[in-house]
């Protein structure tokens, strides 16, 4: 219970951040011709910002299902890396049924917060951590879908930066503290800007760009600045 509450507490800022980001998604979905219920269903079953936005655009343009599949695969492939990374931090309470359930809510922010916990994480903490953000995501979508039309465009435009503000808040503290993390982030950001801004490379989609940058920067980091050898397992459990 204590772990659950701790997770819940850690999830609150993510939940509020999601509320504003999904609010923007809700507005966009209904103004693209979806009903409010449809907008909510998308958030309920996907729980991902970039993938949903791309999915919405494909729906509206009557794209084929194969294209939908490939787009989701590329944009969301980063989650495979995150799930793999998270699999290394799970304790014994994370049995298969819980892995099946909790992987559903493994978002960028949830993953990063969970990764930064010292030692292992268990299911109680992870349920706490994911419950708020999931609720915020679905609720925000509903509010945006129902009430979004009432807001002036200047407000909805400004809300577009919310998710990025959240990303910045997540990566800057480790950026400040660890030289190694700093180098990896700088490489990834530089590559990302290069790919986006060079006309020659502009054929690379957003999803692929993220994967390319993350893989190159992380591989360079792992090669040049590998982590110290495995700490003692027992010590880790005590810490948690």
């Amino acid at each position: 219970m204590k772990q659950y509450l701790k997770g819940l507490r850690h999830g609150v800022p993510i939940a509020v951040g999601y509320l504003s980001v999904s609010f923007a998604f809700g507005i966009q979905a209904t103004s693209s011709g979806l009903t409010s219920i449809q907008a909510i269903l998308i958030s309920l079953f996907n729980v991902t910002s970039a993938g949903q936005l791309a999915g919405l655009q494909l729906m509206v343009s009557s794209a084929g299902l194969i294209e939908m599949m490939l787009t989701q695969l590329t944009i969301n492939l980063r989650y495979a890396l995150m799930s793999l990374s998270l699999s290394q931090k799970l304790d014994k309470t994370m049995t298969l049924p819980h892995r099946l359930l909790l992987s559903f809510c493994n978002t960028d922010e949830v993953f990063v917060v969970a990764s930064q916990q010292p030692g292992k994480v268990g299911r109680a903490y992870l349920y706490g951590l994911t419950n708020g953000p999931f609720l915020g995501w679905v609720l925000g979508t509903g509010l945006g879908a129902l009430a979004g039309g009432l807001l002036p465009e200047s407000v909805t435009a400004a809300l577009g930066i919310a998710i990025y503000g959240m990303f910045v808040a997540i990566i800057l503290p480790p950026f400040r503290r660890s030289r190694d993390v700093r180098i990896v982030i700088i490489i990834s950001v530089a590559l990302s800007c290069l790919i986006s801004l060079l006309p020659l490379l502009s054929f690379i989609s957003t999803g692929f760009r993220i994967i390319i940058c993350a893989v190159i920067a992380s591989a360079l980091g792992a090669w040049l600045m590998p982590l110290p050898d495995e700490p003692n397992e027992d010590e880790e459990v005590l810490e948690a």
Binding site: F167, I171, V184, A214, A217, A222
Partner: peptide, 20 residues
């Protein structure tokens, strides 16, 4: 292991810039 440790930071960096 080191690669997986760096992934989240690299991913969020690339998602934020220049899209923000």
């Amino acid at each position: 292991r080191s690669f997986l440790y760096y992934v989240p930071y690299a991913v969020l960096g690339a998602m934020t810039f220049p899209d923000v």
